[in-house]
Design a protein around this nucleic acid. Structure first.
Lengths: 204, 204
DNA sequence: GCCAATATGTACTAAGCGGTAAGTAACCCT
DNA sequence: AGGGTTACTTACCGCTTAGTACATATTGGC
């Protein structure tokens, strides 16, 4: 048997690069949101026709979810990187300054697609709205777990409330996404980051 | 002449209450956003037919803008009220706790329609997106002006940066809107408010 | 050279969109 | 009672939407 077919090198080869096309799709979803993006918007930006899009990505919803995966692995990679910093304060610092740099970066749309991709939306977008909501909540849970560890490590006071700290940080990060949409610059967001850190407890 | 016609008590009277219908429209726009709301959604929620909607409110875009005015004068009235508190710290306090109470209030959709009504959207929604963006920026400018006054009044240190304080507060308030969409409770948002105030300077 | 397999472009579908024309119903004023 | 004015209902408009059928083109393997 061994019908693995992992390398479907048979048949006519694809005329476009899947990853590049996905980047283009992410750009459109990021700027226009799920409801505001039409298939025409997508095929035009991706440089392919509808049947190619459906063959390669399933449908609009699955394409969106794949674009979000790409977003988290590339433009939003600073989030997971920050979690690995040695102390809770450094985690917060790295995450806030990373967000300040990234969300107002003119090299891509402003803000965060996980925040603004499907915040208020039609019933047709309920699935992707839920997916984004889950990502936001999971991000905060990762932060909370990291701060619990910091209390064990001793770089956060034992009296610190890890859950509230994580929610405070999540609130500011999500607020920064709106600020970037408002036209705030990276420097202005850095000032917000600095103020946010003033309320952040530290043992060292 | 005197063709003022301020009281159009002539002709068949309207069979619905304009203000009630506008409240219903606000509710739909708040939950679904501008792009995610169809005219069918609106007419169904408002209990009227399309021609009545167009006669009373112009079109979808003008209806949205009128709904936003209603939002600012009612559910979001705490914002302007907070600006009148005697000190900068009390302004921030009242605004943060007011937002915590309001944005997670189960009596209406969660969050803030000025934030989530048209954040990322289609080109058809460009006008309302711009209108909401302006409201957010103007709100922050009002905060900044209030804090400038507070420096003159002496209840903020002369070294305080009114612009950054306003942006920090705006960031947290807008972040709270996302948090409320994430399912955060008023009590959880109050904890965020308390942390936010820890970074807030005060002379008294 | 031919077959199986995959991708492509064109043309199509049914349904929904925002918005409106036209006829009818309900009111005030004279 | 009739005319003027306004609102309501029904049916429609042209256009766009997400998604697909089908014929054609391009590859590797035999």
């Amino acid at each position: 048997m061994s019908v693995v077919s992992c390398t479907p090198s048979m048949g006519r080869p694809r005329a476009f690069d899947v990853d590049t096309a996905l980047e283009k799709a992410l750009d459109v979803f990021w700027r226009k949101g799920y409801d505001g993006t039409s298939l025409s918007d997508l095929t035009e930006a991706m440089g392919i026709n509808k049947p190619s899009l459906y063959a390669a990505f399933g449908n609009k919803e699955q394409l969106f979810l794949k674009a979000i995966e790409l977003y988290e692995s590339r433009p939003c990679a600073f989030f997971l990187q920050a979690l690995e910093k040695p102390t809770a304060y450094q985690v917060a610092e790295h995450m806030l300054y990373g967000a300040a740099m990234n969300m107002a970066d003119q090299a891509h749309p402003q803000g965060c697609v996980v925040v603004q991709g499907a915040l208020s939306c039609s019933e047709a977008a309920a699935t992707v709205k839920e997916a984004l909501l889950n990502r936001r909540v999971e991000g905060e849970q990762k932060l909370r777990a990291r701060f619990e560890q910091a209390k064990l490590d001793g770089d956060l006071p034992a009296t610190a409330d890890a859950e509230t700290l994580a929610r405070y940080l999540g609130t500011v990060l999500q607020g920064m996404a709106i600020q970037a949409n408002n036209g705030a610059t990276s420097e202005q967001l850095r000032q917000v980051a600095a103020m946010t850190l003033q309320a952040f407890p530290r043992n060292n």
